[in-house]
C-alpha cells in the first residue's frame, strides 16, 4: 500500500486516501485528429516495467489531482508534482536519473 505526498497540501497520504487516474502527460486528441492519434490517446498504454508517470487524486483530502513518478516494479517514488504540466519537470527528471542512470525521457 503506497504512500504518496500530495504536492499541494503536503500530506503524506496513504493509498486509501487517494484515487488513481492512470498514465500522466497524455496529449488530448479531439475532433479533426486521425484515427491512429485518437486511438493512441484513448487506448494505447505502454504498461512499462520501471519508471512511470501517473495521475493520482487526493480524493480523501484536498481533492487535487497531482502527478507521480514511480517505478512500477520496485514501487520506488521519485517524486510527486503539479498536474499542471505537460511533461515531467527538470527536478523530477533529475531525481529519476540519479537513481536510474540508464533511463531517458522519451
Amino acid at each position: 500500500m503506497l504512500t504518496l505526498t500530495c504536492p499541494y497540501c503536503g500530506v503524506a497520504a496513504c493509498e486509501t486516501e487517494l484515487s488513481p487516474g492512470g498514465e500522466a502527460h497524455l496529449k488530448r486528441f479531439g475532433p479533426g485528429s486521425s484515427d491512429d492519434d485518437f486511438e493512441a490517446y484513448l487506448f494505447l498504454r505502454p504498461n512499462v516495467k520501471g519508471v512511470h508517470f501517473e495521475r493520482w487524486r487526493h480524493a480523501m483530502g484536498c481533492g487535487k489531482w497531482f502527478l507521480a513518478a514511480r517505478d512500477t516494479a520496485t514501487l520506488e517514488v521519485f517524486g510527486t508534482y503539479s498536474a499542471q504540466t505537460t511533461e515531467p519537470p527538470p527536478g523530477i527528471v533529475e531525481a529519476i536519473r540519479a537513481k536510474r542512470p540508464d533511463w531517458s525521457p522519451t
Partner: peptide, 13 residues
C-alpha cells in the same frame, strides 16, 4: 464532480 475537476485541473487549467 470528480470528472469536472479532472478536466479543469489536468487539461484546461
Amino acid at each position: 464532480h470528480a470528472h469536472m475537476e479532472d478536466w479543469l485541473q489536468c487539461e484546461w487549467w
